[in-house]
Design a protein around this nucleic acid. Sequence first.
RNA 1: GAUUGCGUAGCUCAGUCGGUAGAGCAGCGGCCUUUUAAGCCGUAGGUCCUGGGUUCAAGUCCCAGCGCAAUCACCA
Length: 562
Amino acid sequence: MADPTPETSPETAPHTLISESEIIASRRAKLKRFRDELGFEPYGQREDGLLALADARTRFSEDAHAAFDAATKAAKAASAAGSAAGSVVDGRAVVRVAGRVVQHRDMGKLVFLFLRDATGDLQVSISKSAVTTNAWELAKHADYGDILVVEGPIGRTNKGEVCVWATAVSLGTKSLAAPPEKWHGLTDAELRYRRRYVDMYANPETAKVFAMRARIVSRIRRFMDARGFLEVETPVLQPIAGGAAARPFTTHHNALNMPLFMRIAPELYLKRCLVGGMRKVYEINRNFRNEGIDRSHNPEFTAMEVYEAFGDYGTMMELTESLIHELANSMVDERRTAGLRAETDGPEGGPVLPWGELAINYAKPFVRVKFEDLFRRGAGCEMRDFKAVRAKARELGLHHEAKLDDWLVVNEVFEECAEPLIDPCRPTFVTDYPSAVSPLTRPSRSDPALCERWDIFIGGMEVGPAYTELNDPDIQLAKFTEQLKGADDEESTFRTLDEDFVESLRVGMPPAGGLGIGIDRLVMLLTDSASIRDVILFPLLKSMAPSGDEHHDAPPVGKIAT
RNA sequence: GAUUGCGUAGCUCAGUCGGUAGAGCAGCGGCCUUUUAAGCCGUAGGUCCUGGGUUCAAGUCCCAGCGCAAUCACCA
């Protein structure tokens, strides 16, 4: 980067619309002083040989520290007694570290500060007598949020704090923003989401959750790969949004002048992979649904879908149970390492992980209950006794019951009465759903009113469904057609029959089991996070209204494709 | 979409019955070579979310709007 030209000096002419508080003005003044008077490049440079702060801490040696301490004291005593002091041998490891300043205590001729990186905090102690004048001035006037690079031996203070005794200090990056409160951190939920980059360093728990998320997803991939599944990537931009019944986001391809949808599910493409001959495939990727936002819904979310030729919903059940059990075990290990609450000796042999007020027991086998049995327990009548079911629906105040098909009423009564009976502390497979509410599922051969589908519930949340996939093109076409008939005007603008998919079934898709798992929800459960926003780095928020501009949502025409 | 709550300094929060806008941290100036939210002295900092209304007087009461949160609804 070239030096800033004087006439556009950023210290005096910030070209942002953000008003400059005096806090920021003073930081700009410091930036100028650090650069012009002290000779530090305010935006740093390449640094080789940096240790993560946690790794630097492990280089501390009690023996080396004690030996150096004793030698220093002896030398001092000798010097005081007038005898010649031999040179002190310093056996302490020298480390070079970088981090953001999160504590700064100026004791006059000694400065203590805490640096923070993604691995944790480490104290740096800077004695005026141990560094150059310029480094001393930099350390003394460093602001919260500045990134410093420090080198020196690692030892202890008198109070026992492991620290780097700086021999060199330089500027990694000057921070020009007012920092959050150093003790309370950033607590305002809105600010935490809008300024996640501050939240991540100010609240280390936030960064930890995302590190855990990364490990969970990585373990899922290893699990799937070890079982011989091939990871594939299918279109996010789809001409027809299929595979689920959700409202899609719409977009447009200019060169082809073609409307497109952001996918609501990858299902129909993954099945085409089976038609093409892939036996076992999975995809972990984003889905987009243009619907409401709450603690368990974000408009874009990550899902894993899995398809296994010649499997069925039982195959998928075993896979899901093993995967989630294994993930829970790994989280127990992680939590123990971190000194957090977790057990492996639950009533059924654990692992047990906390989720809010709940202690969820992931012991195998997970609970299995048939839809029909759970319905009977919850509603107090047989689900096939539609008269009784409708009476129950009216009793529950489901006033639009009359307009609905029998099985849809069954489904609503189930959600109202039966789902609450599921123990939130035990992962539970609800199996054998009514065929009528599962258009992509193969009907059960022994009982065509039912189909080979389960949903897994954990902590009261629906984490994912699995099917024995419907691969009869004629039945599939009939189900799609029927579904389209029920669509209202609005739905029909985005709901279209995917004829190519039906054609692929005519080519022939092997019998298969398929599975979908909401990764965000699973991560919520495994990391004890209450909201999906706590496991998505940059969750969608309403944009801040630019004052006085009513047309801010109109795109700047002509500025898009440059 | 509905209901409730919240919105005050950069951050975390007080603000009584409607009567001069407050604290801590951060900032600025000073002191301090062993601090652990360091401490001490001094100092500066406000569109009380926005817009109306009631009133002699509104951060406070009323109405509308915006944002966030929780609960519900929606979401096979």
